[in-house]
Every structure is written in C-alpha cells, then in structure tokens.
Amino acid sequence: MSDADDLTREIEAQQERLVFSGFDHDDAWRLGSILVERAGDKPVLIDIRRPGLILFRAARTGSTPDNEEWVRRKTAGVFRFETSSMLLQLRFAALGTFPASIGWFDPAQIATAGGSFPIRVAGVGVVAAATVSGLSSEEDHRLVVDAISEFLGV
C-alpha cells in the first residue's frame, strides 16, 4: 500500500465523517470565520459557495487574481464529481492519467488540486463547497478540513 493509497482512504473517510445536519448562510459565515482565523496571515483566498451564489469570501493579504481562478476551477470539480478536489487529484494520479488527455475533461474548467471540500448535508447531498487557494494542495486541503472539523465538533 502506498502513501497515496493511504491518503486516498483518509480523504474518503473525511468525506464520510464531515457531514452537516444542515447548512445555511449563517453557517457559511461561521465556517468562513473559522477559516479566516485558522489561515492567520497566510496569503489565501477563502470561498464558500453554493452553485451560482457566493456565501462567504475573504481575500487575505498576498492572495492574487490567480487564486480566484483556482477557486473557481477547484469548486467546479467538487460540484461536478461531488468529491473533494484533493481526492480528484489523487484519483487521477492513481490512474496515471493527465486530465487534459481525457476528451470530456476540460482542465480550464476543473482543477485537480487540493483545497475544495464538499459541504454535504445528511439526506440531501452536496449543497456547497468550501475552498482555499494560495498554499500547496495538501495545505489548502488540510486548512479546509480542519476548519470543517472544528465547525462540526469532530
């Protein structure tokens, strides 16, 4: 078993464990505030959105327009595949496939890089995505997962 396999199983377990009983605009504000606090002075863009509606946004000092593009593409992957962008990255790597080589997968629209995590409501499914861009894939992912874990008390 490889480190990538272990990480894949860990993220799958996170997605099973980090499920909300509900999620509204006030929850987005509270989760976003936790993300801002945990980010500290790191140069990240923080975004929580439903399809078509940004619920929370914070651009920390040092974040750039490039982070906006990464947020857009990571979030698109969460909504399309209903899984974290980090898990997408790991699954494509495990296949040995570069996403651009797949005719139906447009890397200009979807990023396979960590940092966007599905907000899944029990009995409903994915209703939103929490995304961070500005650090490494692993650090972006960890920041979001740690904030969601704190929010849920897990």
Rank of each mutant, 00 (worst) to 15 (best):
M1E: 13
S2F: 01
D3H: 09
D3A: 10
A4K: 07
E10N: 05
I11W: 02
E12L: 05
E12G: 02
A13L: 11
Q14S: 12
L18Q: 04
F20N: 07
S21E: 14
D24F: 04
A28H: 03
G32Q: 02
K42V: 00
P43W: 09
V44G: 08
L45K: 06
L45D: 07
L45W: 06
D47V: 09
R50S: 11
R50V: 10
G52D: 13
L55C: 10
F56Q: 02
A58I: 00
A59M: 07
S63A: 15
T64Q: 14
P65E: 11
P65A: 08
N67L: 06
E68G: 12
E68Q: 12
E68H: 13
E69I: 15
E69R: 15
W70M: 10
R72C: 06
K74C: 12
G77H: 04
R80W: 14
T83Y: 02
T83S: 07
T83N: 04
T83G: 04
S84F: 06
S84H: 09
S84K: 08
S85E: 02
S85D: 04
S85F: 01
L88W: 00
L90V: 02
R91N: 13
F92H: 12
A93E: 14
G96T: 10
A100C: 11
G103R: 15
G103M: 13
W104T: 15
F105E: 14
A108R: 13
A108I: 03
A108E: 05
G115E: 12
V121E: 03
A122M: 05
V124Y: 11
V127C: 08
A130R: 00
S137T: 09
E138P: 00
L143I: 11
V144W: 09
V144K: 07
D146L: 05
D146H: 03
I148G: 01
I148R: 06
E150P: 01
L152V: 01
G153W: 08
